[in-house]
């Protein structure tokens, strides 16, 4: 129950945050920069949070679940990414569509790997986790 409550609170923040970033960063040249930024930052944060055990051990598990599943999970979005990519294809803007997909996929993996690495380097217990 605590998990559900934490997810509700943080998902509200994550979802409104995504909307506000979208408003603040309108599409430049029809290219969805806001979604790229959101998904890359979120990928790094979630990966870091999932492995920063030395930090997350200091608060109730519900906070970590709320932040991860609710906050960062709702902040990032897979559906908007796919629909935007399809829209670029339907407008026959092939180069924009391909670069959008590649930047999101490769950038997301790099940010995620960095998040894991940073957390394991500085925020994990000495005995390796997992």
């Amino acid at each position: 129950m605590a998990n559900v409550f934490a997810i509700i609170v943080f998902a509200f923040l994550g979802g409104s945050g995504r909307y506000l970033v979208g408003q603040a960063l309108p599409e430049a040249a029809g290219f969805p920069w806001a979604t790229i930024l959101i998904n890359l930052i979120g990928s790094g944060l979630l990966a870091w949070l999932s492995h920063a055990k030395r930090l997350t051990a200091q608060w109730p598990e519900a906070v970590t679940v709320g932040l991860g599943v609710g906050g960062v999970g709702a902040f990032t979005t897979f559906s908007t990414f796919s629909v935007d990519a399809v829209r670029l294809v339907s407008e026959q803007r092939w180069l924009a569509a391909i670069s959008y997909v590649l930047i999101t996929v490769i950038g997301g993996m790099i940010c995620s790997a960095l998040g894991v690495w940073i957390a394991r380097r500085w925020w994990t217990f000495n005995l390796e986790e997992e």
């Binding site: 998902a11 994550g14 979802g15 995504r18 909307y19 979208g22 959101i38 998904n39 979120g42 990928s43 944060l45 979630l46 990966a47 999932s50 960062v72 999970g73 709702a74 902040f75 990032t76 979005t77 897979f78 559906s79 908007t80 990414f81 999101t104 997301g108 993996m109 940010c111 995620s112 790997a113 998040g115 894991v116």
Partner: peptide, 18 residues
């Protein structure tokens, strides 16, 4: 933006790939 944007997730996807 709300329901489906919050339902789907990119961060979990990237993390699972890694």
């Amino acid at each position: 933006t709300g329901v489906l944007g919050g339902f789907t997730t990119y961060s979990t996807f990237s993390h699972e790939v890694i």
